[in-house]
């Protein structure tokens, strides 16, 4: 029984660590901020959860398990929020690889909504005739 628990715990720890590694890889390999944020949320959160599960199995006593539960809960709650804030800023400052976008439905709405414009000098409203090429 303990052998089984140990194997399960190790499997969780290794899988979690691997997922965290891929999150780091994604930060390096992905082409733009928005894609990187995907790497920063999903594999990262799942990786931390798996490490927590593995540690909870391995560590004795409920005191540790409760603490790990809290870590997991806050990871689930906060990771999406920080990723959202960073990607929102990135979009507004136009750190977006437009050539990779298949669809961009925000851009149409953006034209009527000046609040979405970036806040760098280069983000000043484009001339009328060149409107279609802004942000490249």
């Amino acid at each position: 029984m303990t052998a089984f628990a140990d194997v399960l715990a190790y499997a969780c720890l290794v899988a979690g660590a691997t997922l965290c590694l891929t999150a780091g890889l994604g930060l390096v390999r992905f082409p733009d901020v928005l894609s990187r944020m995907h790497a920063g949320t999903k594999p990262q959160v799942l990786g931390v959860l798996l490490v927590m599960v593995g540690a909870a199995i391995r560590l004795d006593g409920w005191a540790n398990a409760w603490m790990l539960l809290l870590v997991a809960a806050f990871q689930l709650l906060t990771a999406p929020v920080s990723a959202h804030l960073i990607s929102r800023v990135a979009y507004r400052r136009r750190h977006v690889r437009r050539d990779l976008l298949l669809v961009d439905e925000l851009r149409g709405a953006e034209a009527q909504d000046d609040a979405h414009r970036g806040d760098e000098p280069g983000d000043a409203p484009p001339e009328r005739d060149g409107a279609g090429r802004a942000g490249v």
């Binding site: 691997t18 994604g26 992905f30 594999p43 976008l101 298949l102 439905e105």
Partner: peptide, 21 residues
């Protein structure tokens, strides 16, 4: 988690993304 992890590992990398409302 598995899907994004695969995107980071596969040699071709990320090809297409999209922004939708």
């Amino acid at each position: 988690g598995a899907e994004v992890a695969w995107q980071t590992l596969r040699p071709a990398g990320v090809r297409r993304t999209a922004i939708v409302r």
